[in-house]
Every structure is written in structure tokens, then in C-alpha cells.
């Protein structure tokens, strides 16, 4: 399932989906804290080590295993939290997702949830549509997976439209077609 690279893109696609299917679409925001000291991480590390030792036993290319083992240990310490937004319409199977780790984005994302909530309620969109224009902070933390790359954004789009198209074969009423009719 592809994630959108920008929250703007997620918001745009979600509002289109809500316009098409306002009754069945739901938006779920998941806030997860996974502490790095948890047993899950420890298990993962142990597994990685086991795998590393396996490869050394199988093949004698020891230098490759050395390069892979430091990778998990280089993960940042402290709890890692993520906020995932998911717009899902069970009727057509459309699923749009966006994930962030930045606290700075929470306010903006909740505001867009509010705007989408207006769409759910059947209220007209607010006139001033420029609220999303204040772009995300230009500075990116090191090692973040969300640098805005146009290529990736374009890549994500056809993937999303594929997921839209596939389950609708029997359901009828594609999102794009509906929009055209309206």
C-alpha cells in the first residue's frame, strides 16, 4: 500500500474520495508509540543477528554480513512515534494513506481532518482554500523518509489509482466517472 509523500496530496485525494462516497468513507488516524527498548525490537535484533550468523555459516562472504549487522544498531534511541492517516472506503476498496513522525505537522493534519469532516457532514467547503498552502517546514531531519520528491509523488499516484480501479469492477461507479457526472 503506497503512502503519499505529502500531506497535501493525501488531503486532495481524500477530499475527492469523500466527494464521491461521503457516506461510506472513513478516516482513521493511528498514533503509535513503539519504544526501542521493547521486547519486539530486542527480538528483531536477535533475529537479525541469527540471520547474520546463518549467512556466515552458509557462505564465507564475511564482509557482507559485517556491513549488514551495524544497520539495526544504528537506529535512533528513545521511543519512536508515528502518526498515520488513512482514508478508506470499504465499498470501493480505496485506501489512501499518509504517515509522519513530525510533531510540527499534527496541527495542520487535524485541521485537514476538520475540513474533510465538513465534507462528511455534507457542508460546503470553506471559501478560502489556501490553508494548505503554507508548505511543510523546509528543513528535514536527518534520516527522514519524507523528503518531498516530485518523482515519488508521481509514482504514488498511479499506484493509488490502480487500487481504486481494481475492486470497482463489480461495484460500479468509479470515482473519476462520478466526478465527471456531477
Amino acid at each position: 500500500m503506497p503512502y503519499f509523500t505529502t500531506s497535501q496530496e493525501w488531503f486532495h485525494q481524500s477530499s475527492l474520495l469523500l466527494q464521491a462516497r461521503p457516506t461510506t468513507t472513513r478516516i482513521t488516524s493511528k498514533y503509535t508509540i513503539s519504544s526501542s527498548t521493547s521486547s519486539a525490537t530486542a527480538r528483531r535484533k536477535r533475529k537479525a543477528q541469527a540471520r547474520a550468523s546463518d549467512t556466515t555459516a552458509d557462505a564465507n562472504t564475511s564482509d557482507t554480513t559485517i556491513s549488514t549487522t551495524p544497520a539495526p544498531s544504528s537506529q535512533p534511541a528513545g521511543p519512536k512515534a508515528t502518526l498515520t492517516l488513512k482514508t478508506f472506503d470499504p465499498e470501493s476498496g480505496v485506501c489512501l494513506k499518509y504517515q509522519t513522525t513530525k510533531a510540527a505537522e499534527v496541527g495542520r493534519l487535524i485541521a485537514s481532518l476538520g475540513k474533510l469532516g465538513r465534507g462528511m457532514a455534507g457542508l460546503a467547503e470553506l471559501a478560502e482554500d489556501a490553508t494548505m498552502v503554507d508548505a511543510p517546514p523546509t528543513e528535514q531531519g536527518p534520516g527522514l523518509s519524507t523528503p518531498v520528491s516530485d518523482a515519488a509523488g508521481k509514482e504514488a499516484k498511479p499506484g493509488a489509482s490502480e487500487t481504486k480501479a481494481a475492486p470497482q469492477a463489480g461495484g460500479g461507479g468509479g470515482k473519476k466517472r462520478k466526478k465527471g457526472k456531477k
Binding site: Y31, I33, P79, K80, A81, T82, L83, T100, T101, K102, A103, A104, V106, G107, I110, A111, L113, G114, G117, R118, A121, L123, P137, E139, G141
Partner: peptide
Amino acid sequence: ALETFYARYAEVCKAGMQALKKRD
């Protein structure tokens, strides 16, 4: 009540999601 609800909602979420990365 949507407007007021989401204003409060944003406050509560911002206060609650403390484990997210702060601005560097």
C-alpha cells in the same frame, strides 16, 4: 459544532502526541 470541535481536537491531539519528533 464542527469548527469548535476540531479546534479543541487539534489542541488535545497536539498535547497528547508528545512522542512525535519535535522540530529540530
